[in-house]
Design a protein around this nucleic acid. Structure first.
Length: 522
RNA sequence: GGCGCCAUCGUCUAUCGGCUAGGACGCUGCCCUCUCACGGCGGAAAGAGGGGUUCGAUUCCCCUUGGCGCUACCA
């Protein structure tokens, strides 16, 4: 049975790079009908951050990466190989460290940090690789006991075998490291806690992890881990080292160059589907000429292959994330709107341009419901004062679906003109390209005003009919009527279309704005 | 400095030795159109360099160059 694990350390938040690691671990396990487990690696007491574990778990659950074993959100642990919080496994680690001392694969080191620093300085000066000089390797038993009983602090170091170590990485193929260049790793710190290296190996073994999938930054320490497995006499798991996620300048993705915490993206309103989809494609691709890019988690579970993960790092390109987000927003919203439209009108026709309703009532009801839905989507980006006229707000929002779905942060900006008629010069009502001069604008506005005044039922349909009638009567091009009218209604160079704008504003306000525009032209 | 990893458009990538090097993001032209947007159709844009192997290399090997990672009593 294949078993993978995601083993984050709770240092504050879930990093997007970690999210991808977790995703790949999850996908690989799912694809192979294996198990995915979560272990908290909190052996570094100095870096402990309050609330970090909770944060990690809730973020993981937000994206939907469920695990079969590990610490659950309610604080309970699930699985037979617990505890899944590393600090609770301290004794297990220490027992195993002792075994290593007994078998000669590890030794106590009493060197002070000062001595070690000095030693490294000298080595650096001599252009040597900084490595522990094994001063404490062959300390006589009597001396060790004396130091121990006098309470001198010590660490436990792994005695590296100095043989060259080879292994096969699933992603990178054959790896080889010269054993002589590998430092005697500290296994247990002087505070009595194990380091990552010991704890990770012991726990992975005890938890029966078959595939260690982790970031490339661990590649150089993999030989140390393999040496440990061998020292213990344990089976060595398979390794897969994932390429790094990069900043635009190609350095390891960091906080300094943009958002790196998954929760930031949640806060910004990114959809989990988009985040997962985007992150899955950073460093992996279904290959075989597949050109589709939009995939659900479920679909990814079926097609994911570790062997197709790349070797080189991938730049985290926020613009592409935005595109994925937009695709997903659109997809989900359209699905919801289709359901809604069918509910309201059994005979609605779905065209690639939108919905054709069989009756006006259905369309009007649809628009209002759509507006309300969008209000929820853009929650937090709508100024409070707009809530004072909720009907206007709903109608206005219903016309801004694409803009809101694309970037809800600009909702207030897009909404403003509906609520406050902007100041503008009469030139806005003209358009050279469309052959609308001041005179034409005056004619178009006064004639269309005359027509729409007669509309009793202020519906989108009626507005369209009425205004096309105006165009026909004046015998001009659509734009010659619609441009000045849209400009007059919105007071803006860019806005939703005429019909939509007029409909949203309502009859009274529309007539008033047209009248005000006409005044400018007199 | 030492050790290691990596190398196709600006970015994410396809290619299992035959390539007029494909797609996506971004950029851009045109069309649609009452503006913006959406949508549709195009365009510019890539195999780091040098050696091999081969009838033929982006693809396999070597070197160079470049980039990155690790080099803590952090993970």
């Amino acid at each position: 049975m294949i078993k993978t694990r995601f083993a984050p350390s709770p240092t504050g938040y879930l990093h997007v790079g970690s999210l991808r690691t977790a995703l790949y671990c999850y996908l690989f396990a799912k694809k192979n009908k294996g198990k995915f487990i979560l272990r908290i690696e909190d052996t570094d007491q100095e870096r402990f951050v309050e609330g970090a574990v909770e944060n990690l778990l809730s973020t993981l659950s937000w994206v939907g990466l469920n695990y079969d074993e590990g610490l659950m959100e309610d604080g309970k642990e699930v699985g037979e190989n617990g505890p899944y919080i590393q600090s609770k496994r301290k004794n297990i680690h220490l027992e195993n460290a002792q075994k290593l001392i007994d078998s000669g694969h590890a030794y106590r080191c009493f060197c002070s940090k000062e001595r070690l620093t000095k030693m490294r300085e000298i080595q650096a000066k001599n252009k040597q690789a900084p490595m522990y000089d094994r001063k404490c390797l062959d300390l006589p038993e009597s001396e060790i006991n004396a130091k121990l009983s006098s309470g001198e602090p010590y660490v436990i170091r792994q005695r590296m075998p100095y043989d060259s170590i080879r292994f096969k990485d699933i992603i990178r193929g054959n790896m080889q490291f010269d054993g002589k260049t590998i430092d005697d790793q500290i296994l247990v710190k002087s505070d009595g806690f194990p380091t990552y290296h010991l704890a990770n190996v012991v726990d992975d073994h005890l938890m029966e992890i078959t595939h260690v999938i982790r970031g490339e930054e661990w590649l150089p320490s993999t030989p140390k881990h393999i040496a440990l497995y061998q020292a213990f006499g344990w089976d060595v798991p398979e390794f897969a080292h994932l390429p790094l996620l990069l900043n635009p300048d190609k350095t390891k993705l960091s906080k300094r160059q943009g958002h790196v915490a998954v929760e930031e993206y949640i806060k910004e309103g990114y959809l989990k589907e988009a985040v997962i989809n985007f992150v899955a494609f950073l460093g992996w691709n279904p290959g075989s000429g597949e050109q589709r890019e939009i995939f659900t988690l479920k679909e990814l579970e079926k097609i994911f292959e570790l062997k197709k993960v790349h070797k080189s790092g991938a730049v985290f390109n926020i613009e592409k994330l935005d595109w994925f987000n937009w695709q997903w927003h659109k997809k989900k919203f359209n699905e919801e709107m289709t359901v809604l439209a069918k509910e309201l009108d059994k005979n609605v026709e779905i065209t690639n341009r939108g919905f054709d309703f069989s009756n006006q009532e259905a369309e009007e009801a649809f628009l209002l419901k759509k507006g309300k839905k969008l209000k929820k989507y853009a929650a937090g980006f709508i100024p409070k004062e707009y809530e004072n006229t909720p009907e206007l707000l709903t109608r206005a929002l219903s016309m801004l679906d694409e803009k809101i779905l694309k970037n809800k942060k600009e909702t207030a900006k897009n909404l403003a003109f509906f609520f406050n008629y902007p100041e503008y010069s009469k030139e806005l009502l003209t358009n050279k390209k469309m052959k609308v001069d001041l005179n034409q604008a005056y004619i178009s506005l006064s004639e269309s005003l005359k027509d729409i005044k007669k509309i009793e039922d202020w519906t989108l349909q009626n507005l369209k009919e009425s205004l096309f009638e105006t165009v026909k009567r004046l015998d001009v091009k659509n734009g010659q009527v619609f441009w000045p009218l849209r400009a007059a209604l919105s007071g803006m160079q860019f806005s939703p279309g005429v019909f939509e704008t007029a409909w949203a504003l309502g009859k009274e306000e529309s007539l008033s704005r047209i009248a005000q525009a006409l005044k400018k032209l007199q």
